[in-house]
Each structure stands twice: as structure tokens, then as C-alpha cells.
Amino acid sequence: MTMMVNRTSAPAVRERSQGVGAGPGRRGRLAQWLFVAPAVLYMLVFFGYPLVRNVVMSFQDYTPATYFTGEAPFTGLENWWAVLTDELFASSLWHTLLFTVGSLVGQFTIGMALALFFSRRFPLSGVMRSLLLLPWLIPMVVAGTVWRRVLDQETGVVNEALQGLGVVSSAIPWLSSPDHALISVILVNIWIGIPFNMVILYGGLQEIPREVREAALLDGAGPFRAFFGVILPMMKPVVTVVLVLGFMSTVKILDLILALTNGGPAHATETLGTYTYQLSFLQLDFGQGAVVGNVLILISMVFAVIYLRANRDGLEERR
């Protein structure tokens, strides 16, 4: 009789123990979802809905009248065809490419040079690094307005200095000539983005043991060979993150270009960002403006995936 009780009670005890253990697990998962729910809700409301709404709008005839009538008839691919076959879209895409690549190359090159310079300790290095952060802290509109005055053809400081030094004989139309405007905007954006590159790359340099750099120099490697053969490969995760983040922030710049040239002269500085602004807020064609916005989103999403993969690979290499 005792043996029968033990045999029947053992599974029951086992079931009760499993039931007790499963309860906290379910409650733990529920608690995890409750903690994540506000962030998920925030992403859906402030990112998911606008993204979906923008995609839908690109297939509609969405005009200011829609806000009063509520009618936005679907036009199929008409908006996409009108934008993608527009010559201004092609030139804007080309200007965006030139602006982004030129800015990234200049910001990274000068930022890396400054990071290497400040990696050697010397008096007042901290003060100088702090001062170099100022361009990064200034709002884009303010920086663009100041540089517009600095680069003015008639009263700008740059032209007065170049003419005073005898470098040029006549004033250069930095922002009023189609041949110079895009280069000028790129140079201003390089000036703004140098501090970000310098700070991140400087932090990456600090992660490299000083003994490694000294060993490379002792083995007979010159400064350039030590940099390209030892330092740069070890900084690959940091460099990748800097370039991808720089791309994602540069490709969609709008306020700086509006403050400097407003996309002119003769659309010489028209990028995808200013093009969608022109369509949506000046021509009030929200459907076509949404098309250009979706193109920018697609480009940013591609490089967002690259950033996430680079960040994951960097974490795995550190482990």
C-alpha cells in the first residue's frame, strides 16, 4: 500500500514542481514585455506610422486641398514616374553623391589627422580639443548663416583675405557661381563634421595599446607603414562605424544647404533633401515629395543595415 502511494505521488509531486517553476517563467516573460512595450509603442507611433503614411502618400494625389476635403485619390505609379524621369531628380541624386562622398572624405581625413596629433600628450591639448568641438555644437542654420557672410563675394572675409595676400586678383563667387557653390557647401560641411570624426577616432586610438605602436616603430616600420599596417587595421570597427554614421547624417542634410544657397544657383547645390523640400513645401506636391523622401529612406536603411552589421562584428572582435 505504501509503495502504491509513493508511485502515484511521485509524478504528482513532479507535476506540481514543474507547474511552480513554469509560473515565474511566464511572469518573467510578461514583465520583460511590459518593460519593452513603451519603447515598442513609441517606435510604432513616431516612426512606424509616419513611415507607412509616407509610403502610402507617394501613391496618392496629395495636395493642400486634401486637408480640407480628406480626399487623396490613388494615382498608382504616376508620382514615382514623374519624379524618377525628372532631370532635376537625376542631378539632385548626383549632387547628393558628390556632397556626401566629398564631405566624408574630408571629414575623415582631417579628423584622423587631428586624432593622431592629439594622441601625443602635450600642454593644453585638452583645451585645444575642446575648442575644436565648437563647430559640432553650433546649430546648422547658425553655421550656414555665418559662413554665408564669410563667403560673400563682395564683403566676405575670405575674399578680402585672399585679395589682400595677393592669392587672387578678383573676388571669387563662392556661393553665387554654379562652378563654385557645391564645392563651397562641401567645405563648410567638412568644417562642421571634423569634430565628430576627431572625437570618435581619438577614442578608438586610445584603445590601441601604446606598446603595439612602439613595437611597430622598433621593428623598422615608418610612421606611414605603422599607420596603414598596424593602427588602421586595428581601428577597422571604429572606422566603419564613423563612416556609416557620417553617411547617414550627411546624405539627408537640408538646413545647412538652405541657409547657404537654398539649392541654387541654377540648382547647382540641389540635393535629394532640398529637392523633397522644394516639392513638398514650395510646390505643395506632397505626393511627389513623399517619393523623394522614400528614396532617401531606402538609401538610409541600406547603410543602417551596414552599420548594425559593422557594430555587431566590432563587438564580436572585442570578445
Rank of each mutant, 00 (worst) to 15 (best):
M3F: 12
M4P: 03
S9M: 15
V20S: 12
G21H: 11
A22D: 12
A31V: 10
Q32R: 14
L44R: 01
F47W: 15
P50G: 08
D61E: 14
T63W: 02
T63K: 09
P64H: 07
E71S: 12
T75R: 12
W81Y: 09
W81H: 13
F99M: 05
V105W: 10
G111D: 01
A115Q: 06
F118L: 01
S119I: 03
R120D: 10
R120A: 14
P123V: 05
L133E: 09
W136N: 06
L137D: 02
M140N: 15
V146S: 08
E154I: 00
N159K: 03
N159G: 03
A161N: 09
Q163S: 02
G164W: 12
G166P: 05
L175A: 05
P178W: 06
P178G: 07
L187D: 00
L187E: 04
V188Q: 01
I190Q: 06
G193R: 00
P195G: 09
I200L: 15
Q206G: 13
E207K: 13
I208R: 06
I208A: 07
E211V: 04
R213A: 14
A216G: 07
L232V: 07
P233W: 03
P233R: 04
V238S: 13
T240R: 15
V244N: 04
M248K: 01
S249N: 11
I253R: 06
D255R: 00
T261P: 07
A266C: 03
A266L: 11
A268I: 04
A268D: 02
E270T: 08
T271I: 11
T274K: 06
Y275V: 04
T276W: 02
F281Y: 11
L282E: 15
G293E: 05
N294K: 08
N294W: 12
S300F: 09
Y307F: 11
D313Y: 04
L315M: 13
E317I: 10
E317V: 13
R319A: 10
